[in-house]
């Protein structure tokens, strides 16, 4: 029998509860999940119109285009990561909970990746066909995006947490986050390029994994500190 005021269950219970709550909330607002995907498809549509419909030309720039467009789509979805919780006050409850905030923030980021990064990665090969992406690189494209977008979600969440208290944080958020995205973009697009050239991709994917590992170590603490700044300020 726990004492009054003491939380029942451990940190895993809290993480599971946060995961379930965020999943349910996001799945009920489907447009928030679908909008980045539509944005991704739209941006990819703009390039052949703006540059040239020539498949050979498109094939050479397709890896970079797909990666940049997916990165921007992920960026676009970041503003909503903490915004809703901030506005209805549940973010404050999260901060007040006796469980470690970095773990809870990590759970929120995991849901964000599951419903933004992963769908983007699954959709990218379809758009790759439209850009005449050379065969043999489709699996690597999806894999690199799945791996890389997890880092993007973690790094982006720091920016989202820093700007959640600001009424017009959208442009500022991209200003803060985009420079930090560059290593992920380099190795993500590099992996697809390497697959097209027939070189080994394991080195690129390994570095993407290493970036993710570093982000997983540092980002939760930075997100937690930023959330406290945004709430108490």
């Amino acid at each position: 029998m726990p004492r009054v005021g003491e939380p029942e269950g451990g940190v895993m219970v809290a993480i599971r509860a946060t995961l379930r709550r965020d999943l349910v909330l996001l799945l009920r607002r489907r447009s928030e999940v679908l909008n980045p995907l539509v944005f991704f498809a739209l941006v990819i549509t703009l390039f052949p119109i703006g540059i040239s419909p020539d498949p050979e030309l498109l094939a050479t720039i397709a890896p970079g285009l797909l990666w940049v467009a997916a990165l921007l789509a992920a960026l676009l979805s970041l503003d909503g990561l903490f915004r809703g919780d901030y506005e209805d006050g549940s973010l404050e409850q999260l901060l007040l909970s006796p469980q470690p905030l970095p773990a809870l923030a990590m759970a929120k980021v995991a849901v964000h990746w599951l419903l933004t990064g992963l769908p983007l990665a699954l959709m990218a090969p379809v758009l790759g066909i439209m850009l005449a992406l050379p065969a043999g690189s489709y699996l690597v494209l999806a894999l690199s995006l799945a791996l890389g977008s997890a880092s993007l979600s973690l790094i982006g969440a720091i920016g989202a947490a820093l700007t959640v208290g600001l009424s017009r944080g959208g442009v500022l958020l991209s200003l803060l986050v985009l420079p930090l995205y560059i290593p992920v973009l380099i190795f993500g697009a590099g992996a697809v390029q390497a697959a097209i050239l027939g070189a080994g991709v394991s080195a690129h994917l390994a570095i993407l994994g290493a970036l993710l590992a570093v982000a997983m170590i540092f980002a939760p603490w930075a997100i937690a500190a930023s959330l406290r700044i945004s709430i108490n300020g």
Partner: peptide
């Protein structure tokens, strides 16, 4: 808030 936010961003950077 500005000071603390800028400090966190500088450290992340």
């Amino acid at each position: 808030s500005a000071s603390r936010a800028a400090s966190v961003l500088a450290m992340v950077g």
